[in-house]
Amino acid sequence: MQVTHDELVSLLAAFADGELEPRRRMLMEEHVRQCAECARRLEELRRLSRALHIWEVPGATAERARALSSALVQMLPHRPAVSHLRRPSWITWAFPAGLVVWGALVEAAAVLTMAFGLAVMAAGLFAPANAWLSWLAGIFPSLNAPGWLETIQGLRDLGCQVLGISSTLPASLWDWLMSFLMPTIVFVSLLAVVCLGMWGWFGVQMARRQL
């Protein structure tokens, strides 16, 4: 693999810090032997690193560390045993679990409603009563193909049988379902997903801030 001089220069700091993986490290070692400019830059980095250590922490001795930790032990507040702290209260899991279950149910309802509505539309039992349905039917003309028709009619009848409703509901009801109820459900479910995401993100951020 051909590596340019500029690419190698950009890796110099990582090389000086011992952060390169073996293959690149060998490549860099070879390059530094041949390139006076990179050798000079590398020496500058190492020289800077050595110079920084002139500034030491005053009084940093083992005795001082012992004294500080002894004083710390006296200052530590009482803390309940870990087993009590780690036991989750019901609210800890019930709230997020409830949100997740609710969100999943709403999503499932939205998807089923949409699928059922599309099936009805494709079956041609009811003419699309608004512009949105006409637009959708225009995009997916294959939904009107004969093979689909029987399949979807069968699915629709089965669905109606399971739900215990009539398969000959009035067109106005389907229209209402498709134009009002379904977008509402989709909107609410999307809102629920956004809320869940924000809730999770906020929880993570709070946990980090507490550190």
């Binding site: 922490v57 940093a60 001082r64 560390a65 012992r66 500080l68 710390l72 530590l76 870990v82 087993s83």
Partner: peptide, 25 residues
């Protein structure tokens, strides 16, 4: 973790120079 302050003190002693060093610089 179980609440032993002496053990935590030894842990703190081990990391004292690290913590003080970062804060000092």
């Amino acid at each position: 973790r179980a609440g032993d302050k002496e053990a935590f003190g030894m842990l703190a002693q081990r990391y004292c120079s690290f913590a003080v060093g970062v804060a000092y610089r």
